[in-house]
Design a protein around this nucleic acid. Sequence first.
RNA 1: AGGGGUGUGGUCUAGCUUGGUGGAAGACGUCGGUUUCAUGUGCCGGAAAACUUGGGUUCAAAUCCCAACACCUCUACCA
Length: 628
Amino acid sequence: MISLNKKKFYITTAIAYLNGKPHMGHALEIIQADCLSRFYRLFDEGLVFQTGADEHGMKILNTAQEKGIEVTELLNENYQAFIDFYNLLNISFDKYVRTTSKIHKDGASKLWKTLVDNGDIYKGTYNGLYCIGCEAYKTYNELIENKCPNHPNREIITLKEDNYFFKLSKYIDKLIKIYDNDEIEIIPKRRKAEILNILKEELDDISFSRQKEKMPWGIPVPGDDKHVMYVWADALSNYITNIGYEFSPKEFKSIWPADIHLIGKDIIKFHAIYWPAILLSAGLELPKKLFIHGFLTVEGLKIGKSIGNVSDPLILLEKYGVPIFRFYLLKNIPTYDDGSFSENDLIQIYNNVLADDLGNLVLRILTFIEKDFDLHYPPLFSLSVEDKEYIKEFNFIDELKGFFNDFQINKALDRIWEFVKLTNKFINDRKPWELKKNNNNKGYSTLLYVLLEGLRIISIYLKPFIPSISERILNLIGKDKEYNFNDIDFNPDFKDKINKKEVLFPKIEIKMESKEEKEIDNNITYEDFQKLDIRIAIIETVEKVENADKLYKLSVDLGYEKRIIVAGLAEYYTIEELKGKKITLLTNLKPRKIRGILSQGMLLAADDGKLVSILIPDKNVDLGSKIQ
RNA sequence: AGGGGUGUGGUCUAGCUUGGUGGAAGACGUCGGUUUCAUGUGCCGGAAAACUUGGGUUCAAAUCCCAACACCUCUACCA
């Protein structure tokens, strides 16, 4: 029953930063959002699912410059990559917002003006750490011993810059009340305390604009074209700009407020504090729920460009296909916490869950139909007691709804799987092959009809998770209707044709030689070894690193050059033991900041788990001697 | 550095908000049995083993508090 005036259910994801290509983390969030959307759509109510792209930001400019291309070129390239990615993953988004679009810019401008009218935006000065060498602001974290890593010899100065600010502080008390009263529901609940903690800290007003020359393609601040909007005004507003905030009050009213903002745990503060404050100022309704998901680690390692293990989802997708990828992420990754992605687990889930439980179930039922009913629906006679009991188990929509409302997607899937297993057990208990042998043709026929209904029910339930598989099963049992939760009841009227049985999930052979391959990979050539520039150096001075128990800061002399390195030796060597020692040093290791100190090399040492021993030359070779 | 979060069997996860149904659960793996319609599948059963560590509160702690360790996250923009 769709009522025209009824507000639509509105789900959003965070918009993706178009600085790079999609990775595993993006896949997780968008698949979760898609699953939520498809689930709520099964209730036959209007729904809007929006995702999009953040196309402003200094890093985009930097990346474009590094690649030597125009910003727009980079953006369009990455935009296309994301769209292709979403299409491949079968993502059913209704709206896609680009922050460079006119609609968005107009909306953001309107929002800005509204905040100005309400007296919440003012001009102030922003104090930033500025590197003269880079001609750019630096964050505290980027600095190494208070110096810019790229220009260690140049000064970092505090630079004042005119900026517009938003009066966040004005809304703190209101926000505390809002969370105390659960006006915005935070899921998982434990994160609520986290938010209240942040609110009770000192929160300054937030900087709301940047000088235009830094981001020339940004959204101009209304009435001051020397400034462009900063991320809070620009990006967060996507949730309203694209659904008619500026251009269609009617559409806007039918969609806003958001029912669910799905976000990652790193952007809680922006969505739980900044965004509601902005909405309060603009006099708009607040979103109803924030679903906060964890992060993915891949084979135990964090996903991140810096580590370089952004294991490419596209390769996995090509290898295994979309359904298993979705199924695995939704089943095995907890929604409340971090989860770990493992290719091996994915194969296990595929073989042991999808193939053994579901694939086999479909196959075993269809085999009977193909053999004994010439691919037609078996005639339905009176239902047995057992049949009726089984049919009673069809409807567990409310349980699923409970799980979904609490963002427990994996639990919902587990519940559905209970039904899949129940169906397998039901077959075992009823033994259709014996009914047939005993010439109980009516019972046999009726049972199979009921089982086909079971498959139809399973398909409907699986729609949000693996839509393509759901469709395939329905197609096998001769159904092409767009089912929803109104169709969960037992339907005694089917007479259509059934299609030939089919193995839905051919097993994946686990290749045992993968280990051998790895061993071969572990062999390196002499040329590989020569890439390592290992030399003899002498330790000149040693000092403890502040606030670090295990670290020493060493200055070493290579004969031709002196270096500062950081080594985790404090638990194993005293300062005196190290001073003056000749050591082996990997000199061309990429320098890395450790506890604020740039370590320009790595001291080689042996570690057996208990003891650590530095490697020292057996004879008195010259400083700078190369090890080969 | 400072704020916050998390830490459960071989593996992946429930449970923690509001302490007690716990001799800690489920799935996968493993072992045994059994069935045959089906993809060495299904079903039944067993074994084994774990709440990071150390304190504290309590009649009672996986759950609340404190500390240590590890990982994650935020502190002007990587889910």
